[in-house]
Amino acid sequence: MSTSENTKVALPAMTHTVGMPRHQKIIFIVLLAVLLALPFVVYPVFAMKVLCFALFACAFNLLLGFGGLLSFGHAAYFGMASYVCAHAAKVWGLTPELAILAGTATSAVLGLVIGSLAIRRQGIYFAMVTLAFAQMVYFFALQAKFTGGEDGIQSVPRNDLLGIFPMNDDMTFYFFVLAITYGGILFIYRITHSPFGQVLKSIRENEPRAVSLGYRVNRYKLMVFVLSATFAGLAGATKSQVFHLASLTDVHWTMSGEVVLMTLLGGMGTVLGPIVGAAIVVTMQNYLASLGAWVTVIQGCIFVIGVLLFREGIIGVLSRILKKPL
């Protein structure tokens, strides 16, 4: 752990190398191989759910793990994108790629508006502000006409990709979703390992020093906020196409809590952590769904244990043992 543990979120050290380190290249190739084989092993819709949440958690981790900003309102971007995408596909009859694009763009704008206000406060106030704005978005989704209120937008069609390829087969659609999410995760990796990512890291570690070096800190914070909201939107929009549904669940604060849980469990500030965390949480929800409210209790327990004993997360611990950033 770093020496700044007293004041900062403890994060595993990130070393900067030119290009992708060899072991990470191998990890990404193995990951792709696993994901290509996944729908032949498990139910494709379940596999797509894992992919969407993995991208969502990676987007969240971009903000928390690399920007040091804890947003408690990421459901707003995930959920609004899912509504707009569903509306675009159902009412406007847009093709999947355009509907997803519309949803993602909505989240980017929403992220710009909320982010420019939220970065005016730091630390826990930032968390409370993002949570409050997300609740405002929730009330909007509850009352607005196009979202369908309690019913949500149901039986959203999956139109033909590019107007040519039918996408109704889940197995076919899986590979489209895989392309989106894997591309998104690679893109996020690229952001965090760019000069921009290094500046973010310096702001996270020592904001006054970054200011004194002449960086416009708020501009960087806003940029990473918008990027994070955009990728969260991409995940949400894709999810509404997967399930033919956009509902209030996606925009509720429990969803914001879940993405925090996934990232904490997997390991904040790691590349693979959010993916592993998302896979575990989604699997758990899937198999424990019959237990009802006990799932909430179990999630709460993971939070408590994670914060008290296990702050590095699964991948964080692995990364420390192997002495390699994962």
Partner: peptide, 30 residues
């Protein structure tokens, strides 16, 4: 629990009490 976190970032206190809230609400819902 909470007293173990005073030396850490404030965000951990938020996450811990969020977890506690989930547990309490889940138990009462059950």
């Amino acid at each position: 629990m909470i007293s173990r976190l005073y030396k850490l970032d404030h965000l951990y206190g938020l996450l811990l009490t969020f977890g506690l809230a989930l547990i309490i609400q889940g138990l009462f819902r059950n």
